[in-house]
Amino acid sequence: MTRKEDRDPVPDTDLMAYVDGTLPPEKTAEVEARLARDAYARDAVAQWRHFDNLIHDAARTADTQPANLRIAALERELARKLQRRRRWAILTGPRLRQVAASAVIFAAGWGAHALYDRGASMMNGAYPGFVSQTLAGHYSYTLAAHERAAFGGDQMADALAWLSEEMQQRIESPKLERLGYRVESARLMVVDEEPVAVFYYRNPEDERVTVSMTPRRATQPDYELRVARVQDERMAYWTSDRLHYTVVTSSTETPVTTLAAAVQE
């Protein structure tokens, strides 16, 4: 006869897995056959299962405890933090690297002339008119006197079709959704008799991006990519495919060149 002390110290992983319900089906029959002929193993399984059930039931009494408001608040805060962490990981993952790489290519394609200007000289004529208008629109959302039409974020297909028709050339969505931004509205404004399509975006951190597109007239110059900082805002502007583009952002997380690359793609 085998004494308990002789057998217990050796962990029997098959028996444990059987007790815990994690034994693969192909081994279950084997273990059950063994249990049928081994009273000691049978007894061990019954007792382990019983102890497990007792501990499990005791643990479940936690579910009957009153809700703890402090725990609930901490849980919410942790969810926010982890969500932010998860989002940031997505934005800094392969997708963002791809967009960032295209930003470099985009700037290099223009002879790497992008540069940063500091100061608030834009309002005194240092920047093209379409840039000033976009920045003004970014601060105030819209210049009501100039607004011709406004579309909600859920009407983008209609907005793009209408804007394309009004501006007599194809207007593409800035596609900032892939960087985690949500389009809030699209508007058509008329400034100095020129139509300007403006898109307003916002990300979960409540940071705004304003994108504008306006046709380049034959008498106007092409602008290479320029990057500027005005107070807390960063902006980029350039000309491409007979359109002047401006991007203004309050975001500190997404570089304005990345936004510009996403708009240009």
Partner: peptide, 20 residues
């Protein structure tokens, strides 16, 4: 509950180290 609270406070502080 004190232990869970302490755990959550530490998890919040370490959230930036969590690997999504």
């Amino acid at each position: 509950d004190d232990l869970v609270q302490e755990t959550l406070v530490k998890a919040i502080a370490k959230a930036d180290t969590f690997q999504p």
